[in-house]
Design a protein around this nucleic acid. Structure first.
Lengths: 189, 189
DNA sequence: CCTGAAGTAGACAAGTCGGTCTATTTTTAA
DNA sequence: TTAAAAATAGACCGACTTGTCTACTTCAGG
């Protein structure tokens, strides 16, 4: 597996559960069983490890979501599948993503508020990537670019809102409620 | 004003901008010009100051939002006003709420993931309070309790989504886009 | 004027922070 | 087999963490 990846995995798990500033480098080392010097051979600072963890989470999450959506026909069905996917995530049925503690990127931006900070930028890039994924599927069922953009935006907001509601209020059905709203928006009766 | 409130104001400002675990008690003391012993006369620990800060932000934010919505006729117009209000917030036109760094309660739950932690609970209570405010207005324009609940929920998700998009991606028009979607949902054409 | 409460400055404690360094052992490849 | 590379344990650094303690000052009310 490699020590570098051990460090990233452990750091991500701890950062995600407790927040980044609450976790010290020594705790990452202890729980990963890696020596301190080894960490500083692979990363030049804690911040650099943080960046790697965010990048890893981006890959992890995006690939999971994309493959879930690709398991259904492009367009409406794939977009609906997104809500089922995050519903599984909220209810801890996706081991790859660890236990659900809200969105790691939202949480991280709460600790790195400066939009010019590299960590914040990576979080923003992740969200933009997910948005583009939605838009790609929205284009399948919309008659214009702007209409697809608007639909993707609506679904995106519903999804982000559901993540927040699930985490802050502990509403484990938030994704299903969001799906019901989205469903009405896509196929107007 | 009172030293206690000075401490809460300063702590809230710093916590909101940088996150709670990134701010030390000494920085709060220095920027508020209060002596350390005075802090520990009013609060038994940092955590207790954190709770007070969250509680203060709850009052500050809720009273502001409620008064903005009350400035318009109950029901549809008040609900639309909510989006204009948060739009002003995103664009730093509400000095009371400080510069916009996302939602303090969402950010704070990112640092206190345990739903049983008193700080997390207070954040959840805030969100629930806002939801009830929306529901009260939704009842004005809905024909049933469940319909109102669903409308309030949809508007709530859109609002939370907009907060996230505005903060993480720096989309300063997120509130207006959410409003447009909400508008279509309230008065179906 | 005096007393008591409230606030101040700052030393101090015990521990943690990110990070460097050394010395040793393990692993890998030629 | 041997030499280089990688990883190890752990001491060490200065700065910072929350929180306590002491001694001094400010201020308000009777």
């Amino acid at each position: 597996m490699g020590r570098r990846q051990d460090l990233i995995d452990t750091a991500l798990r701890l950062f995600y559960e407790h927040g980044i500033h609450a976790i010290g480098i020594n705790q990452v080392l202890q729980e990963s069983g890696v020596a301190k010097q080894t960490l500083y051979n692979h990363f030049e600072s804690k911040d650099s490890l943080v960046e790697a963890a965010v990048e890893h989470r981006d890959k992890l999450f995006f690939q999971w979501l994309e493959s879930r959506m690709n398991s259904r026909p492009a367009g409406r069905e794939a977009l609906m599948e997104m809500f089922d996917a995050v519903h599984d995530w909220f209810n801890n049925r996706v081991p790859t993503l660890h236990r659900f503690y809200g969105c790691f990127f939202i949480n991280t931006c709460g600790e790195y508020s400066d939009p010019e900070h590299p960590v914040h930028k990576r979080c923003a890039a992740h969200k933009t990537r997910v948005f583009e994924l939605l838009k790609r599927h929205a284009l399948e069922i919309c008659t214009s670019e702007t209409e697809a953009e608007e639909l993707a935006n609506a679904l995106f907001l519903l999804k982000e809102g559901a993540i927040v509601k699930a985490h802050v209020e502990g509403d484990l059905d938030a994704a299903l409620k969001a799906k019901a709203i989205a469903s009405r928006m896509i196929s107007p009766h």
